[in-house]
Computed example of a mutant assay.
Amino acid sequence: MPPGEQLLQRISATRTFARIAPHVVPGLDRAVHRLTRGKVLLSARMLPGVILTATGARSGQPRRTPLACLPQEDGSWIVVGSNFGRPGHPAWTGNLLKNPEAEVSWHGRDIPVRARLLTGGERTRAWRTALAFWPPYAAYQARVAREIRLFRLERR
């Protein structure tokens, strides 16, 4: 692992990062994504990422959220509702629970997906993969009492 990546992971696991990042990273990602017509996500320089467009659980309006993802060999993606280790589940996870039909922007292409909350052994395996992929997820889980939600986004 390159030294810069180790430093980034250590910073990402801190409570200070958890307080600041949710207010800065998504807005920057959305702006750069829009300006580059879906071809660039700044956060994808660290981790692969998608822009998830899901229907708001309460509003019924489209909600666009930049997310780190774990691309799978079968063409699906695993997304982790870590909320940077903050107490509540991120809103996008509630949106997917109520409205699993969604869309991701992946490398400049819009792809319709269906979200499925992972449970049991499938969740356990995906969580192990997520921790190997991005170790700060362990620090996020250690800070919260809730079980971090994991979803598989499957192409429709």
Rank of each mutant, 00 (worst) to 15 (best):
T16F: 12
F17D: 01
F17P: 00
F17M: 05
I20E: 03
I20S: 06
P22G: 02
P22N: 01
P22H: 01
V24R: 09
V25Y: 05
V25I: 14
P26M: 04
G27R: 15
D29H: 02
D29W: 00
D29I: 02
A31Y: 08
V32R: 00
H33G: 01
R37T: 11
R37C: 09
K39P: 12
L41R: 00
S43V: 03
A44Q: 06
R45D: 03
M46T: 13
L47G: 03
G49A: 10
V50W: 01
L52A: 08
T53D: 06
T53M: 04
A54V: 11
G56I: 04
S59I: 11
S59N: 12
S59R: 08
G60S: 10
Q61L: 15
Q61K: 15
P62N: 06
R64A: 15
R64H: 14
T65S: 10
P66V: 07
L70C: 08
L70H: 06
E73Q: 15
D74W: 09
G75T: 02
I78Q: 05
G81S: 07
S82Q: 06
N83H: 14
F84P: 00
G85C: 00
R86H: 08
P87E: 03
P87Y: 03
G88S: 15
H89V: 09
P90Y: 06
A91L: 09
W92N: 04
T93I: 03
L96E: 03
L96R: 05
L96G: 02
L96A: 07
L97W: 09
L97Y: 09
L97R: 13
K98R: 14
N99F: 12
P100R: 02
E101R: 15
E103H: 14
S105N: 10
S105E: 08
W106I: 05
H107L: 13
H107R: 14
H107G: 09
G108E: 01
G108Y: 01
D110P: 12
D110T: 15
I111E: 07
V113H: 06
V113T: 03
T119F: 13
G120E: 06
G120T: 05
G121F: 08
E122V: 11
T124S: 14
W127F: 05
R128I: 12
F133M: 15
F133K: 13
P135E: 04
P135T: 08
P135W: 02
Y137W: 11
Y140A: 02
Q141N: 05
R143Y: 09
R143T: 07
A145R: 14
R146Y: 05
I148L: 11
I148V: 13
L150N: 07
R152C: 12
